[in-house]
Design a protein around this nucleic acid. Structure first.
Lengths: 209, 209
DNA sequence: GTGGTAACTTACCGGAAAGTCAGTTCGACG
DNA sequence: CGTCGAACTGACTTTCCGGTAAGTTACCAC
């Protein structure tokens, strides 16, 4: 490919690069995705990526911001509503699935364990991911309080469990792309109901442990 | 450090290396842990690791086998018992926490996403990890059947959710090392009970979605 | 003692991927 | 038509890491 401009304005190219990066980071994670691969996926060369985003973690941070922005809005919307407990949980799931429907893999980069912990990524995280975690903690705390559980450690533990449950559902979704967001919501409701209605929902006698 | 033997027999050294690798793989994952770091952690040099384990994925496979072996036994023990539904779930959690108590980070390498998908690791996975997944699917399927849910896709989705819940609890445990295995079991029971007892456990009206 | 073997290390190779340089091409505007 | 800046690239350097070669030390059997 010869050098020289192809007449694509910077803003457009940046969007293309972010789309490509979103796909690859979402599929393979930060660590095992090379900038060169992103460039190829976007149909351009590596130096252009560096010219526009500075460094690999700058690219990732930009991806992260764009991805998280709409999600946070949707989740905050539910939080402002009047639902509580498991109902709020289900509504939140519905909001997440609906937002994610065009490209579910986006969820993966929000909790990518191989992403850098400092630099621009840290800033993007503080701006958005922490807000998701805070919202989750609020919802979980509310639900536990209603159920008579008030220990802050319980609340923290339940928060990470809840986030991981969402993670698992999205992962399962990625392996079943034929499912619609609505399918996913209905399935989640069935599963939550099944757990809640499970006959042996009382704790087993301590002697059994 | 001069070359030459230090008089440590191979079996002992192998155990030391596996201990070090277990720690580092558990903390940072396969991809971001270098063989050199494992060697330093074990107090020896890199070539010795290669001499004993052949390659990086051989080392990881050895780690994985050792880690999973006792876990599978413990979980199978519960599966052979007569408990079902959530009670079986809690008993399984208790068995996992008890087995993991000496070094909880071991759990992480069982489901390390950055581990290689073929070679020796594949074999180790087939031998052990797949059995954990199968056991989980059995237990989950049984529980869902009792609750009147029979869709195989529901069962598969619930299986990955359940495994991720265990994952989340172990992760939380790693950040709260002062908690005993028994503490973790009691906490899990409290959380499961809270979900089951949550007032709004009926699905919300479709119109709300 | 002395030779053989098991336990070790320093110093290196080669590839992959982050990041950089020195440009080349093209459209826009005078 | 000239020229200036924005878009764009091939080729390079650097760093890190998996893996290896070749040699050193110490124990042990005879």
């Amino acid at each position: 490919m010869r050098a020289g401009t192809k007449g694509v304005p910077r803003a457009d190219r940046e969007t293309q690069i972010l789309d490509a990066a979103d796909r690859l980071f979402g599929a393979g994670g930060y660590a095992s995705t090379s900038v060169d691969a992103v460039a190829r996926e976007a149909g351009i060369s590596k130096p252009l990526v560096y010219q526009y985003f500075g460094a690999k973690d700058g690219l990732f941070a930009a991806c992260l911001s764009r991805a998280t922005h709409t999600l946070v809005d949707a989740i905050e919307d539910v939080a402002r509503g009047e639902s509580v407990g498991l109902e709020r949980g289900v509504l939140t799931l519905a909001a997440i699935f609906a937002t994610l429907e065009p490209h579910p893999y986006t969820w993966r980069l929000i909790f990518d364990g191989s992403a850098p912990a400092d630099g621009p990524t840290r800033r993007a995280r503080q701006e958005y991911q922490d807000r998701i975690v805070d919202l989750a903690r609020d919802g979980v705390g509310e639900m536990l309080t209603l159920a008579g559980v008030s220990d802050p450690l319980d609340r923290d533990a339940m928060t990470v469990v809840w986030l991981r449950v969402v993670d698992a559902l999205v992962d399962w979704w990625l392996e079943h792309p034929e499912q619609s967001a609505d399918d996913m919501v209905r399935r989640s409701v069935r599963l939550i109901t099944a757990v809640a209605a499970s006959p042996a929902s009382a704790p087993p006698p301590p002697s059994a442990i």
